[in-house]
């Protein structure tokens, strides 16, 4: 199974560190690995990627992007990698091999491919190679370097729009009890979480976007969640980042919270990052923050799949999200919040 395979608008993108990490997770005998220490590409993984790639319909894409971000070593894999490259090249695909660290460039002996390349770029000590028989560059530098985020967000938007659900049922019954305010629709993150390869890649990207927070003093930092959707997201992030996860079941504006007087779920002096599926008005996260602060612990930021910028919070903690809905792109979603004053 390919986790990072994004196929959209005739572009095929594969992130090899993502593939390597989930392959390692699937092997019980590998020692605990996460996005920080998974830096080597292995032969079984590369062969498996090649096998999966061969099952993709060649007509479904014209451009191939192989993203090698965060990988440093790949011993004795030059032949397999070259075979993978030739598979696409011989079929006339435009190929980008991007974010290649110098050690990896040497390991994979990519200098052998240079004669076929249209362009060899260097950005922050990382190489990029571009191959095109038609001598055209469809995605320009440096946009290509961050292309996976753009591609993911386009696909996410498409999938979320189709999964958008009405807030009320056929008989005008309320389907969600998360808020006292009135929404004409809600974003169904469970549908995203159940989309296995896509959500796994999304959470991998999210883990990378927050990893700078967890580089130091991991023992002092925890993820914290308070919803069933959040528990899935936090569980996956905890594995990807190698940090522990704490939770309160179940916290929300309307939902009741289980009493936890037996547990030391919030540890004095520790630092927490609140993980949720969607941040809308931020009531739920604020409630969790109050409880954490009451225990003399700290909330350092929020991590969420979708951050709806409903209100301006000038002094708020940093929020990391996979997707943001703001006044610029809300015309696509038409997300609105109403109250008793202007009820739906």
């Amino acid at each position: 199974m390919l986790y990072s395979c994004l196929l959209h608008e005739k572009v095929l993108l594969i992130d090899l560190q993502c593939e390597q990490i989930y392959a390692n997770f699937g092997n019980k005998d590998t020692i605990e690995q996460n996005i920080f220490n998974t830096t080597s590409l292995t032969l079984p993984l590369l062969r498996s990627v090649f096998d999966d790639v061969k099952h993709l319909a060649l007509t479904s894409f014209d451009i191939v992007v192989l993203d090698l971000s965060n990988l440093q070593n790949a011993h004795n894999l030059d032949f397999v990698f070259e075979t993978l490259f030739e598979y696409f090249f011989e079929k006339g695909k435009e190929i980008y091999i991007i974010n290649i660290k110098t050690t990896l460039y040497d390991n994979l002996k990519l200098n052998k491919l240079e004669s076929k390349a249209l362009l060899k770029g260097l950005n922050n000590n990382e190489y990029c190679l571009h191959f095109s028989l038609s001598k055209t560059m469809t995605i320009p530098f440096p946009e290509i370097l961050y292309f996976k985020f753009k591609l993911f967000q386009e696909l996410f938007e498409k999938k979320m729009l189709s999964a958008n659900s009405g807030y009320y049922g056929e008989n005008k019954e309320k389907l969600s009890y998360s808020s006292d305010v009135y929404l004409d629709k809600y974003i169904n993150i469970k549908v995203f979480n159940e989309d296995k390869p896509f959500s796994h890649f999304g959470l991998f990207l999210l883990a990378h976007s927050v990893k700078s927070l967890f580089n130091n003093e991991k023992n002092n930092q925890y993820l914290f969640t308070m919803s069933i959707n959040g528990s899935y997201i936090a569980s996956m992030l905890s594995r990807l980042l190698g940090v522990e996860v704490s939770y309160l079941d179940h916290l929300g504006p309307i939902n009741r919270m289980y009493k936890t007087k037996l547990d030391n779920r919030i540890l004095t002096g520790k630092h927490y990052f609140l993980v949720s599926d969607v941040i809308c008005l931020g009531t739920e996260t604020k409630k969790a923050e109050s409880i954490i602060s009451y225990e003399n612990a700290f909330v350092d930021g929020y991590i969420t799949i979708v951050n709806i910028k409903t209100v301006t919070r000038p002094n708020d903690k940093p929020t990391f999200s996979l997707f943001e809905i703001n006044k610029e792109n809300n015309n696509i979603f038409n997300y609105s919040i109403k109250t008793e004053l202007n009820k739906l």
Binding site: S165, G169, L175, S176, Y177, S178, Y186, N188, K190, N193, E194, K196, S227, I228, N229, S231, Y232, H250, I254, N255, R256
Partner: peptide
Amino acid sequence: YTYVPSSLEYYNEFE
């Protein structure tokens, strides 16, 4: 893989 709450009380339909 998917998941459900252990108690069906107090949870949203989509959960």
